[in-house]
Design a protein around this nucleic acid. Structure first.
Lengths: 118, 118
DNA sequence: ATGGATGGTGATCAAATTATCACCAAATGA
DNA sequence: TCATTTGGTGATAATTTGATCACCATCCAT
């Protein structure tokens, strides 16, 4: 999210979690993969606004962090499927919880932001 | 977190939640306030690495979003106390859950990052 | 041989967030 | 008068993240 020069505090769960999953698309990505969209091109079309390049970067970070794994099929055209590792699966409850909270909070935020925009 | 030009999608809970709480210090801040550190100067000394200015900005954003409220006491020197609103309290379970997950995941991330640094 | 579909990478620019520094204000006590 | 304490703001740099664009490779079908 924003901490490379300023190193991660491994003693702080919040710091660790933010490093791994705190960025614009990652929660959304995990959600889609959990829902069965496993191929890059499917993810690009499923996630509104993301570009190929950015997707690729986020996927490879999640892979590096051991949240995702991938399977490469020797087909033509090439087929690659990403999947959640055990660690990845362990975040899913959090993803739903965050999503749920966000939906409940949305009306309030909307009201506030619209009032603000005057 | 990173979405002003690209507007918030109020239909997407993840988008909403990230907007409100997805930034370097906010989870941490809510955690400390819940634990009783309510005054700015206490927060600065409680949270390792944050500066006065940044704290102030995050507090005022949380206040704007209706997550925090504040009470100003007409004392000398001036005393201000921030508190969690009902919405603010409703995130606390999420904060603990994220923290817990992060702590469980920390060893794995640490191993991976150290291996990577070679 | 040309173009399409798929997955992927590097360079670079734009945008957002965080950090730093200086500064203001009120009131108290030395 | 001057420093201290507390809360707060503005301007600007530093850092990180996300977006864009161009490109490579493989294999197939036309």
């Amino acid at each position: 999210m924003y901490q490379r020069k300023i190193p991660i505090d491994y003693e702080c769960g919040l710091s660790v979690a933010m490093e791994v999953v705190g960025s614009k698309w990652k929660f959304c990505l995990l959600d889609e993969i959990a829902k069965g969209k496993t191929r890059p091109r499917d993810l690009v079309s499923a996630i509104n606004g993301i570009t190929k390049r950015v997707l690729q970067k986020q996927l490879s970070e999640l892979e590096l962090h051991g949240i995702l794994g991938k399977t490469i099929y020797a087909e033509v055209p090439l087929r690659v499927e990403y999947f959640l590792t055990e660690s990845g699966k362990s975040i899913l409850p959090l993803v739903s919880a965050v999503d749920k909270w966000g939906l409940e909070f949305a009306p309030q935020l909307k009201t506030i932001m619209e009032r603000e925009a005057l």
